[in-house]
Design a protein around this nucleic acid. Sequence first.
DNA 1: TATGAATGAGGTTTCATTCAT
DNA 2: GATGAATGAAACCTCATTCAT
Lengths: 203, 203, 203, 203
Amino acid sequence: MVTPKKTPGAGRRAELLATAADVFAELGYNATTVRTIADRAGMLAGSLYYHFDSKESMADEILSAFLTDLWDGYRRTEEAGLGPRETFEELVTESFRQMARHRPAVVIYQKEARRLAAQERFRYLADSHERFRELWTRTLERGVADGSFRSELDIPVTYRFVRDTVWVAAVWFRPWGSRTASEIAQQYTSMVLDGIATRPVAR
Amino acid sequence: MVTPKKTPGAGRRAELLATAADVFAELGYNATTVRTIADRAGMLAGSLYYHFDSKESMADEILSAFLTDLWDGYRRTEEAGLGPRETFEELVTESFRQMARHRPAVVIYQKEARRLAAQERFRYLADSHERFRELWTRTLERGVADGSFRSELDIPVTYRFVRDTVWVAAVWFRPWGSRTASEIAQQYTSMVLDGIATRPVAR
Amino acid sequence: MVTPKKTPGAGRRAELLATAADVFAELGYNATTVRTIADRAGMLAGSLYYHFDSKESMADEILSAFLTDLWDGYRRTEEAGLGPRETFEELVTESFRQMARHRPAVVIYQKEARRLAAQERFRYLADSHERFRELWTRTLERGVADGSFRSELDIPVTYRFVRDTVWVAAVWFRPWGSRTASEIAQQYTSMVLDGIATRPVAR
Amino acid sequence: MVTPKKTPGAGRRAELLATAADVFAELGYNATTVRTIADRAGMLAGSLYYHFDSKESMADEILSAFLTDLWDGYRRTEEAGLGPRETFEELVTESFRQMARHRPAVVIYQKEARRLAAQERFRYLADSHERFRELWTRTLERGVADGSFRSELDIPVTYRFVRDTVWVAAVWFRPWGSRTASEIAQQYTSMVLDGIATRPVAR
DNA sequence: TATGAATGAGGTTTCATTCAT
DNA sequence: GATGAATGAAACCTCATTCAT
């Protein structure tokens, strides 16, 4: 009947993490003060430390939760045994799916990963980064090999192009509106795979 | 006109700005302390204030120098009266050209513009952003109109796609190696315009 | 008289005090957090406040229980009407006896008394300190007067020497091993009274 | 002519260390706030960090300076090739000499060493402690061997007795008054070596 | 009796900035 | 031009304590 002002129990922690993630994404990790997070959560700065060890550990939980989900999805895709073009499409789609669940985390990842990865605690960011590279590179190579992708592609450059192209979307994808992750993914995939130009009449 | 005495001073100033830009790009604006900049320049933190009013004004100079050069280039492109596809290619090329000259500035722009633009002093960032949007949107629309670009494009989405796609490159473009800005630009243009997939045999 | 219900409560209280005393002794009063005490007692920090008013009141109870017992013993010794050397020996023995019962309290006393005594609530620490001084000084003076102690002793210096010599032992007296308080006391008394050197053959 | 309010240059650092040492000794390391030190030095808390990395590093410098001087003195004593009783007397004298120079450091050492030594940075405290033990133990053993010290001594207990007996003096030795370190040392040595009692008539 | 959650004061530290020299 | 020393605001974090449940 009554809407509780503050969700009790384990939910509170998740709520606070969501708040923190929003603020980190909006202002950047460094520019975010724990007071800002606390304000937004309706408590005092010190009170956050009942739930978390440190500001850093909040970022840690946010990022690792995202990466765990993401890699679960990627693993499923890898195990599906699809051809390169379909794998490509499915990886993009999965990325957008996770972006929908973890939007602020993706923004944080995009903006802060490089800096954070320098710390031992965030070692897994660098690891994940490397696994990314391998996964996409492998997919691109398979595609070139079987003729799905252009043979003249510079694979490392293309990899970065695709990677950034996908994640950068998180920054400005405020309202997904009515479009599902799959629809958005399709738009992206189409642009990346087939280009935005019409096919030249003669080539 | 200007007393020659000022020349060495001006040189030092440019040197310091370059140092500051490197550090800002590497560590992020917030995470950069004036002491770090000073250390790298071989002086004490306080001494920087002989040359600059504030940390903010360093970022200001760096960003506005970059944007001034960039818009000079874009203006030339606009005045060249090219078709949409050629304009597109030329804008990308010009962007990469400026990226080569102002790499750290581009990284800073990419990462901090949104936050900085909130301040009155950095108003011009928001202005520039808007002019960007208009310029690219106009180009894309012209291309759709004359059949150069696909008719089903979602112009706002495509604009963001192209914009991010280009600038994000600055983050990892450490050494250009032997490739010139034009070559890199061509690679990018080709990917964005024609896609990375081979064209289906029958369409 | 007392409702039996209170007995288990009282037992718990004593247990908690013992835990607190251990931690205070180990880490120091300031460095001890109520959370550490609570952890060691298997409860949450807040729960301690059901049993005690404050951290300070725990220290208070610990110290006053010790001093009460100690002065009971000293009083018995004083009333025994012994000679100075025997009184000396008996005071040291009694001190070690109480140290055996209240070891952590003695460590706390040793390390924190000076600071705590500044507060009104711990006034009794300063009082006890003064009674100490009087008791030992009187004993030493009696001994000098009747020839038991060397006539050239600097009484105030000797008093401090003896006092510290006895209490400081509490710090490292972890396990008493098989030795009783009396045995240890005897060793101490012997060292203090007769010195550690052999007596010169001719004097 | 004019007394400068604040000593400039390298002297300032030493001054601040002396101030910090006084406060640490008076209030204890934990109970001392950097604000208290700064107040006493006539500056703001943050200003201390221009001179020192942290509160901890102040304690570190204070303690290591003391121990360095102390061990220099002990080394000289060891190299003098004295007999056990003379070595004993000389070690005590050297200890009092350093106590006169580093009184607050000794108090800090006495009260905080155990706790601090747990940290890697203060490893040298534990090392020094161990060297202490060896040095005194060796001296006592030599004395027992050559008949200078009583044969029935429990060496480990005696070692602790002597050690504490000497250092604890630092706590209450406020004004040395007119007595030199040697004079005080002699009083101590006499008490410890020969005891405070007169020689029993018959034994 | 105890928990879970929060408060609020205060602690250490960082850092842009100032200024006399 | 640059240094050395300091300021002051604000950051992260700790902790004794409270209180509804």
